[in-house]
Design a binder for these strands. Sequence first.
RNA 1: GCUCGCGUAGCUCAGCUGGAUAGAGUGUCGCCCUCCGAAGGCGAAGGUCACAGGUUCGAAUCCUGUCGCGAGCGCCA
Length: 572
Amino acid sequence: MNLFGEIRDNILAELAAMMREGALPAGLALENVAVEPPRDPAHGDMATNAAMVLARPAGMKPRDIAAALAQRLEGHPRIRSAEVAGPGFLNLRLAPGTWGELVEAILAAPEAYGRSQMGRGKRVNVEYVSANPTGPLHVGHSRGAVFGDALAALLEYSGHEVTREYYINDGGAQVDVLARSVYERYREALGEAAEIGEGLYPGDYLVPVGKALAEKVGARWLGQPEEVWLEEVRAFAIEAMMRLIREDLALLGVEMDNFFSERSLYDSGRIEAAIEALSEQGLIYQGVLEPPKGKMPEDWEPREQTLFRSTAHGDDVDRPIQKSDGSWTYFAPDIAYHFDKISRGFDRLVDVFGADHGGYVKRMKAAVSALSGGKVELDIKLIQLVRLFKDGQPFKMSKRAGNFVTLRDVVEQVGADVARFVMLTRKNDAPLDFDLARVLEQSRDNPVFYVQYAHARVRSVMRRAEAAGISPGAPLIEDAAEVTLARKLAEWPRLVEIAARGHEPHRVAFYLYELASDFHALYNRGNDHPHLRFVQDDAAATSAKIALPLAVSIVISAGLGILGVTPVEEMR
RNA sequence: GCUCGCGUAGCUCAGCUGGAUAGAGUGUCGCCCUCCGAAGGCGAAGGUCACAGGUUCGAAUCCUGUCGCGAGCGCCA
């Protein structure tokens, strides 16, 4: 049951009828007709801007359209009244029985409530984390991981077919550095002194990798030149790092559907094929780029390179895909990778990148636009930095990895549920201050606690009812606080669609906070007004009262499920 | 210099693809404990939505410019 969707359908049907009957000009576009919760509850249960949106194209006065629409809507069983307000709003009040029906519908099909068909038949690839396989994940990665994971869940919830994907950057120079670093640990494991020179990865996490390598191959690479061992050590090290990364992701409850290796693109002709696809469109050429405007790099000199004409698809300058020595830039395999995604038949791609990849957005979109003939939309979500604090003081820790706070550190301190929720209480493009102490406080300014507390309160009430042998019956929703709460429940399906459309999982977190707030308000009113308590003296009254909180817990559960947070049964 | 993002209450932030009197938390002040605990609830005060123009019935939201903060800016990934 999607009340906002249902009422909007009613309104669209009436508008269509008005067009048929000549009350409105035919052929008006209706996409912009919205049905929203009014900001001021005094304005009713729902409001539509239909008359104002249509006034101009129809050449009519908004209030006239609204009045005509109001008259037609008055007959609908779900609508108690429709009145024109302000410049042409139409404020709707729903029939009093609606809220009870809504709660009943939620209880009847808890899994279904809020799920949407908006993504039906749409295949989406969400790429996230994609950290270099050179070490454990750090805090910054964890925010991207949580965001991508919640977004994927949100898209699934709204009916999309989703693939969660990790792009392994195992093709560049950094994995050679990794191999050399592991080689030093390998020597160390065999009793020699490791020489972790400048530019190598110093982290302790490579010690066991070197040891495992020593156990596997023995001493045969000792004293050998790099050409002998580099390739095999690299493969060994990458595999070990990916195992480490998967473990880190598992700590956060993140599981990928697919790991895609950059290296697999090399020496397989796939990069060449992608570039060829661009070349066929005349988008590849040999040329010399203009120097960057303003700041001139000291060593800048004109250089002829193979370039991608990304400006033809909205970029600011064309981009190099080959270095001057003829080898690929990192952009080339990325083009091939996205070409691969397109060829796998996805309708939409989402890349979740760190904010330092901001300069990369336009060229990647240009590539996808060109390679898909404009058919596949690429959305790139940039994740801003996480600033860690503890009790208000900047937090630095380096026990595992040398110089950064790892994802594991954070999860060990606060737990996966808290980490996930907190990271989703901010828009992805806003920096996030994460205080390891504050997020464990049990107070209203800690949204994790507040939402969980609401859920625990409901569960407690339900346990109490169950102990008395009472199960939820036909809901009775009368009091203003009850109606407010039911109204908030009615917004859930609409919220899901808005959040999914905008790729904005943080909206779910904020919604849950609001829902919890309305619930706590009602709960507390029970202190002053015993008739509002969920558990009543007689069984019939209790049965009617507990339906609403149960519906609340169902929606909280569903919302937390999208965020990847486990709802708790009780507070500890 | 150019590109992108951000600028909303003292502080931390929402603001639903342009809507009605811009909302929460926190902090300050007042009131309220038999369901899960006051770890909560109710209320008051607190705003030039950075600034200046523009678009229109209507702008925090869209456009232009200015200022401020952050990130990025031809062989690095």
